[in-house]
Design a protein around this nucleic acid. Structure first.
Lengths: 133, 133
DNA sequence: CGGTATCCTATATGATACTG
DNA sequence: CAGTATCATATAGGATACCG
């Protein structure tokens, strides 16, 4: 984990996700979108074929997985390796850049998974308090 | 940043975001949604009032900010502090749990902002290659 | 100021069928 | 297997008006 200092410091970079028109916002949406984050996380452990990925990311449709992979590939986060065999074999793997993103996504995901009991308790508390009003 | 070992290890927790029905997926969507991540990141530096937040998160509508804050409050990630003054003053701040999430979100955001030049180059390369076909 | 309610539209997503 | 194409729908999101 980065230090608080690193997290707080303005970076003086040309990109600022808080600005509506900043291209970083689009990429952030690709990696944090409904399927983007899960897809990249699934690929963290190694390359996977299209249908392996589909089974791993429970609930994703062919269409959405295809769309998600295209966006990630275009952003240079995922590499597509198609073998011209029959039947075809296509492997997807993270690029070095993609691994950097995936590490941070996994850190977030594991943190959330590990705190779900607290989250669910907060929800019960919230609903209860509201329902009583 | 966590170690690779921590990132890869199965956690043997009851929550697994890869499972379609896991409640962790909903919370992950709250914190990685279009406005959830930016909202929590904005609050990392300190509490903000509703309209301060709205200006900080460029492009968010009143409706979506309100909706986002309710979801985050319900999950126990944000605390709402309303003073019964006139005019009203409402401050939003991260809970300790929310800070844990925000730190990891900021790590991801800063990483993406810092690599946007690589991403944009990858896109140009991708579009060029495809356009030539 | 800090919202909520309503209406309307855009986009995301899903289901199904089809192809190399 | 690894997708694409098409159609239908759900949901996200925005604009506006209004309220305590």
């Amino acid at each position: 984990m980065d230090t608080t200092q690193e997290l707080m410091e303005a970076q003086d970079l040309p990109y600022n996700v808080f600005a509506k028109a900043c291209p970083s916002r689009v990429t952030l949406e690709h990696v944090t979108g409904r399927w983007g984050g899960l897809t990249m996380s699934a690929l963290y452990e190694g390359s996977l074929r299209f249908n392996e990925l589909r089974r791993r990311v429970d609930g994703v449709s062919e269409k959405m997985l295809s769309q998600t992979l295209h966006a990630l590939e275009r952003d240079g986060l995922v590499r597509r390796d198609a073998q011209p065999t029959n039947p075809p074999r296509v492997d997807y793997e993270l690029t070095p850049l993609g691994r950097g993103v995936a590490e941070r996504l996994l850190s977030l995901i594991h943190f959330v998974e590990g705190r779900m009991d607290d989250v669910l308790e907060a929800r019960r508390n919230y609903d209860e308090t509201r329902g009583a009003l």
